[in-house]
Amino acid sequence: MSTARRLIGFAAALALFVAIEHGTRATAGEYAVRVLAMCGINAMLAVALNLVNGTTGQFSIGHAGFMAVGAYAGAVTSHLLAPSLGASHPAASLLVACVVGAALAGVAGVAVGVPSLRLRGDYLAIVTLGFGEIIRVSIESFAPIGGSQGWPIGAESIPATATLPWIWGGALVAVLVVGNLTYSSYGRALGAIREDEIAAEAAGIPTTRYKVLAFAVSATVTGMAGALYAHDATGGQHIDPGAFRLDRSVDILVMVIFGGLGSITGAVLGGVAVAVSLELLREFQGYRLIIYALLLIVLMLARPQGLLGNRELDLRRLLPSRKAAA
């Protein structure tokens, strides 16, 4: 596919998202738009974590930390740009905030990954868990960005510029970047690491370097999700450190396992399913999390490999057979 066609396709998708936002607002109201936005954020987070926990077979349980880095770095960037670029070109300002948030989260990913990815399994989980907590506690005790009180979204603070097309556009970027990476020679190398590290080394793959690479890309995408979350224009009130607790990391993990470890479309479905089911369960109030937990247990018993297993949902497969272009 030529570059021009791809850009046209992306623009068309954004236009579609704008239409969906207006259509939903007109027919189902503001609340439905907000749920759709949550779906988009979740999809980004799940797709990112899947690269590490699914494709590469490592185990991170600190991705809320990368999300926090992206959120606060993005928010600070917007804050600094508010009088200049933010006033004249708010969209450009948001784009810069996303890039900065993603980049800093990526740097944090490398910083966490280099020392810890030499370790296996459980150790990596502990290190990432510790990292997530360090980030959260650091933010709590830093007053200029709101500390434990949080930082409001809206006029005079973080501009609420990330509308539904922004968030879904971000999710589309996440799927394209992670998808192309996963189904490339690099992704094969990551899969080989998951299957057998010794054999992967013997096939010429520097395993530690590749694990760090996967971790960095994953953290970058998570950072972008964080930055968009911080500018949520669909009803976000504020960002606060409490939103980036271990619970959040576990939530992302649940989305990935729910959709099927190793499947990108599964991760998207998992993100959407978690957002929607938590909203649908809202009327049960106090029992909400209990019912949610029971649902997860039932799913794991009935379908331990997740909704899609490690396969991708391919709409073309539903159409009359047509040989895919080599």
Binding site: R188, G191, E195, A199, N310
Partner: peptide, 14 residues
């Protein structure tokens, strides 16, 4: 020590 879950072709391509 093959990459069991990957295809035969992918094993070689790695």
């Amino acid at each position: 020590r093959l990459f069991g879950q990957m295809s035969v072709l992918e094993n070689v391509l790695v």
